[in-house]
């Protein structure tokens, strides 16, 4: 039982870190639009495609 003496406060500290990160991300505006990102994740990444590659593929 004595281990609780250590683990529960540890859990508390961990949770404190997470809540700090969450508040930070809220303030950054990450949760301002909750609908659009749900569509965006369906889009493929295009970063590695250069414009020329695109041209060759689609035309």
């Amino acid at each position: 039982m004595d281990i609780l003496f250590l683990t529960l406060p540890l859990a508390l500290i961990l949770a404190l870190i997470f809540i700090g990160i969450f508040i930070y991300s809220v303030k950054l505006g990450q949760y301002d639009d909750l609908d659009t990102p749900s569509y965006k994740m369906l889009l493929d990444d295009e970063k590695d495609k250069t414009k020329n590659e695109l041209k060759g593929k689609d035309l």
């Binding site: 859990a11 949770a15 809540i19 969450f22 508040i23 809220v26």
Partner: peptide, 17 residues
């Protein structure tokens, strides 16, 4: 909205612990 979210988060944090 930000305040609401933070309130929920803190409530969750406290409740959980």
């Amino acid at each position: 909205d930000h305040k609401d979210l933070i309130r929920i988060a803190i409530a969750f944090f406290s409740t959980g612990n």
